[in-house]
């Protein structure tokens, strides 16, 4: 099956060297993205989602303290270990990225049009100035920017955040990539703008067969967009499932916790928001056994001792000692006062 995949990540490890030793930020993450598929990488802040996205593009090279190992294969080509010069031919033209803070992702002192042009120039074609600016205008129009000729001459601070994110998407599309890594693309935007940007991404997928790795902590976004869900916790992928299965019966207590933490107007009564207690442990203070066990309502003694191996259950891949019980519905979390222990 691997040759059907556009992107295959195997055993990705990212560690950070500190004064006293190394901390594992991402531990042995493996996943695939198929052509035209939208895969959502979900998890709380600090779980390693953003690092995973950046590692795919080799963007962690520039930090001397980061060490990346494992394999990232894109379109049949191994990217890990490639020198920066070769990676540059991948970045933008094969894998592109959009960022969480759309204003910060643009150079404040360079006009927007030039920043889009930079992403186009990568393909080594020689074109006249007016043709290039015509192409930029077309691209901006495509991502829903009205009056592109005016916008091109403006600076990022003169443009709204939503507009900047559209520019970010235009920059990402300029190289005609096969995969878009979208790192929390709507988190910094107003709710109405969020919906527009998500619709645009979905549309581009339909139109161009673009694959998307969508990194988000917002389960609403994931439910709306995803074909497949990857749940990341403390640097590990703890559950992988088709979106349809995941939202009906998540098999990992953490995945289910994330779903249940979203307030629902039709079910929840006031004062009954189910948050997962506690926070993601820091990489240096990772608990032994299953990293989630201190926060898990259905933990066993075993969970503190042995790290669960990923287990395939139907279409789902789950790293949890209680996954089978979860799926058969013998466990209920958070809604009953007494979790089964």
């Amino acid at each position: 099956m691997p040759d059907e995949q556009l992107l295959s990540v195997r055993d990705l490890r990212i560690s950070y060297r500190t004064g006293t030793g190394e901390a594992d930020l991402v531990r042995a993450a493996s996943f695939d993205v198929a052509p035209g598929e939208i895969v959502c990488l979900v998890g709380e802040s600090g779980s390693g989602k953003t690092l995973t996205g950046r590692a795919i593009l080799g963007l962690l090279h520039h930090n001397d303290r980061m060490r990346v190992s494992g394999s990232v294969v894109f379109g049949g080509r191994e990217l890990t270990g490639l020198p920066d010069r070769s990676l540059r031919t991948v970045r933008g033209s094969q894998i592109a990225m959009i960022f969480q803070d759309p204003v910060a992702a643009l150079d404040p002192v360079v006009r927007v049009g030039e920043q889009v042009a930079e992403a186009m120039a990568r393909r080594g074609r020689r074109r006249g100035r007016s043709r290039v600016s015509g192409e930029i205008a077309d691209l901006l129009r495509r991502v829903g920017i009205t009056d592109p000729e005016l916008r091109m001459r403006q600076f990022p601070h003169e443009i709204s955040g939503g507009m900047c994110q559209r520019i970010g998407i235009a920059i990402a599309l300029a190289g005609d990539p096969g995969l878009l890594v979208a790192d929390e693309p709507t988190t910094a935007l107003d709710v109405t703008i969020q919906a527009q940007v998500l619709d645009l991404i979905a549309e581009l997928r339909r139109e161009r067969g673009l694959s998307v790795l969508l990194i988000t902590h917002d389960m609403g976004v994931a439910a709306r967009m995803a074909d497949r869900i990857l749940v990341m916790y403390a640097g590990s992928i703890v559950e992988e499932a088709p979106a349809a299965d995941f939202f009906v019966h998540a098999a990992h207590p953490y995945g289910l916790g994330l779903i249940r933490a979203v307030p629902r107007i039709d079910i929840d009564r006031p004062g009954r928001l189910s948050a997962i207690p506690g926070a993601v442990p820091e990489a240096r203070n990772r608990p032994p056994g299953c990293a989630f066990h201190p926060r898990c309502p259905v933990r066993l003694d075993l969970c503190a001792e042995e790290e669960p191996a990923p287990l395939r259950l139907g279409g789902q891949l789950v790293a949890c000692h209680r996954a089978a019980d979860m799926l058969t519905g013998r466990l209920s979390l958070w809604d009953s006062e007494a979790p089964v222990g």
Binding site: V90, G92, F99
Partner: peptide, 28 residues
Amino acid sequence: LEFVTALRAKGVPEAWIWLRHILRNALV
């Protein structure tokens, strides 16, 4: 800053990033 990562992500050569973007911002 984040935009430097964004420039790398779109495949801009490192020399151009330094001269056109980093230096220009640092000159202010």
